[in-house]
């Protein structure tokens, strides 16, 4: 078969060149500097130290903690938003006047600037004395925590923002997928006496498996690398309790100036999420093989 190599350079080349500069080159620099003791305050004594940074990482309880809290944060906010978005999509199957308007309005959290959303939550909702959350809790006679300044409330605070932000994404994806599901299997199942819940579990979820896995991978990668909302809400605090990986790398590099070490951290960070995603893709692939 003839190949369009020359045309490929003309059409795909420029994009590849741009990606080479903004993605491949930085990745190379990250890998290279992760093997040095480069510290911005002692830039002159930059030496190759092999894998010493990586060994240091795994002996650093704060890094291990950061990895754990990132995974926990990802698990909680992905889990809740996946279920919430799916249920929301089911809810919107029912027709009612103004349905399309509601669907459009539900996309608003998703397109809102995350930094703005986080600021709003922090100032208007989480403020210990004048925030709405504590006002509501206080009115109901419940304890009023100092949200972003206490553990585990600070953790819940960042999860709530992320769930609010990302549930609409899962909703959109599920809504579109449900729209294109064929009707016949459901009618048949209904005639056979399958209940609503049974039809959802036995029919809707299996038929949407590819979509759900796609949404899951997408959601995981976004929460796992989240920086904006967490940095704005808690700055990784109180103490370093909500210092997720992105914030950890940022602080090591731009507060402690330990850039070699910080880069080693981001390499490990990328490897972990790559493994998670590959695992999910493989699982989906196997599953599909098993079905066919």
């Amino acid at each position: 078969m003839a190949r369009d190599t020359k045309a490929a350079f003309a059409y795909i080349g420029p994009a590849m060149f741009v990606l080479l500069i903004v993605a491949a080159l930085p990745l190379g620099v990250a890998l290279a500097t992760s093997t040095t003791n480069w510290h911005l305050h002692r830039a002159a004594q930059r030496e190759f130290i092999g894998l010493a940074n990586y060994i240091r990482l795994f002996e650093d309880p704060r890094f291990i903690y950061s990895l754990q809290v990132t995974l926990l944060y990802t698990a909680v906010s992905v889990g809740v938003s996946m279920i919430g978005g799916f249920v929301l999509a089911l809810m919107m199957r029912r027709t009612f006047p103004g349905r399309n308007l509601v669907r459009a309005l539900l996309t608003i959290p998703l397109i809102m600037t995350p930094v703005v959303s986080a600021t709003m939550y922090r100032v208007f909702f989480y403020d210990a004395d004048r925030g709405l959350f504590n006002w509501i809790l206080g009115t109901l006679g419940l304890p009023t925590p100092v949200w972003v300044a206490s553990w585990p409330m600070a953790f819940y605070a960042i999860c709530i923002i992320q769930i609010w932000f990302m549930t609409p994404f899962v909703f959109l994806v599920c809504d579109a997928a449900m729209e294109s599901l064929p009707r016949e299997p459901f009618d048949a199942a209904k005639i056979d006496g399958a209940g609503y819940l049974q039809r959802i579990i036995r029919l809707v979820i299996p038929m949407m498996r590819d979509t759900l896995i796609f949404a899951l991978i997408f959601r995981i990668t976004i929460d796992y690398r989240m920086f904006d909302t967490i940095y704005v809400t808690t700055r990784g605090g109180p103490a370093r309790y909500t210092e997720v990986m992105s914030v950890w790398v940022y602080n090591r590099a731009l507060r402690s100036f330990d850039v070699g070490y910080a880069n080693a951290g981001s390499v490990v960070m990328a490897l972990v999420v790559a493994l998670i995603c590959l695992g999910l893709m493989l699982y989906n692939y196997r599953r599909r093989e098993a079905v066919s």
């Binding site: 990606l19 903004v22 993605a23 080159l25 930085p26 990745l27 190379g28 620099v29 990250a30 500097t33 991978i217 997408f218 990668t221 796992y224 690398r225 920086f227 990986m245 992105s246 790398v249 940022y250 590099a253 731009l254 850039v259 910080a262 880069n263 981001s266 390499v267 960070m269 990328a270 999420v273 790559a274 995603c277």
Partner: peptide, 20 residues
């Protein structure tokens, strides 16, 4: 490969870009 850029943690690009 293009997709993996979308999924990667952005800090792994941001910090080296800062250094460069």
């Amino acid at each position: 490969l293009i997709l993996s850029v979308r999924f990667a943690p952005y800090i792994i690009f941001a910090l080296p870009l800062f250094l460069i």
